[in-house]
């Protein structure tokens, strides 16, 4: 009799996505740390290199957290918070900055990543919900223990019939 039990299972797709977001965070953070002037110039906020560097540090911290933590969920929520800050800053730049078109493009990209972050958080959150797992350890299909069935069929017979173009009538 197969017996069900309640278990919680990791959502491997969400965890893979979390790892991907972690690497993305690290990459973006390094770019913001190394080239703050170019980033600030692109989004039309010259003079805010310090803020860009701070964002870079935040991205690296959340990225490393996502890559190293057993439970990536808090770090994904951290990313979502960071996304909100970024969107607010870019919104300000669209209204008041020197490069509103570039800021709008950047805001669009951040919005897309935010959707991924939200999807990832949703998947990780659903890990808490128990699912039913069945143990089919009693379903061997054999009349006796599997080790006793080893070699019960005649392998030469089977292999001969599996030969390409091989269907000797004496085996039929």
């Amino acid at each position: 009799m197969s017996i069900p039990r309640q278990v919680t299972r990791p959502d491997h797709s969400a965890r893979s996505l979390a790892r991907g977001l972690g690497w993305f965070s690290v990459g973006l953070g390094v770019a913001q740390l190394l080239a703050p002037r170019q980033v600030a110039g692109f989004i039309g906020m010259p003079g805010s290199e310090g803020a860009v560097r701070a964002c870079g540090l935040r991205e690296i911290a959340t990225g490393v957290g996502l890559l190293l933590a057993d439970d990536p969920k808090p770090w994904v929520y951290g990313r979502i918070g960071g996304d909100a800050l970024d969107l607010a800053g870019l919104g300000w730049s669209i209204e008041h900055g020197h490069e509103p078109a570039n800021a709008a493009i950047a805001a669009g990209a951040v919005a897309g990543i935010t959707l991924l972050d939200l999807g990832c958080a949703k998947g990780l959150d659903a890990e808490r919900v128990p699912s039913t797992e069945w143990d089919y350890g009693d379903r061997s299909g054999f009349p006796e223990a599997a080790q006793n069935m080893r070699g019960r069929a005649e392998p030469e017979f089977a292999a001969a019939r599996a030969e390409p173009n091989g269907y000797p009538q004496q085996l039929h």
């Binding site: 278990v7 491997h12 797992e133 069945w134 143990d135 089919y136 350890g137 009693d138 379903r139 061997s140 299909g141 054999f142 599997a146 080790q147 069935m149 080893r150």
Partner: peptide, 14 residues
């Protein structure tokens, strides 16, 4: 495989 039920059934088969 990666599905626990299927793996338990495979173990049952040897």
């Amino acid at each position: 495989d990666n599905v626990p039920e299927r793996l338990s059934m495979a173990r049952a088969g040897g």
